[in-house]
Amino acid sequence: MTPIEVIFEGLLNLDVWGVVKILLVLALVVYLVFAFMVVREVDAMLNTLKGVFQLPIKLVAWIHFLFSLAVLILAIIFL
């Protein structure tokens, strides 16, 4: 078999959804970093303007972070 035939053979037997899963998990890892940055951003914002709505805003930032963590774990286990 020539190398080109090996590549073609590999492409024909490729598990497309397996590749999609890997890409999705990678994207969700990047998203998790973003969600953590949102938590830090909220802290910075609350330091700049203190007083009202501190707890609900912090809570939503953490819910968003935990939601993205849960989605990442779900993608690894479930898919």
């Binding site: 969700l28 969600a35 949102v38 968003h64 939601f67 993205s68 779900l74 993608a75 479930f78 898919l79």
Partner: peptide, 13 residues
């Protein structure tokens, strides 16, 4: 199912 869940995650963000 994952697509719908991720969609709602993006909506929340």
């Amino acid at each position: 199912l994952m697509t719908v869940i991720i969609w709602y995650l993006l909506t929340l963000a």
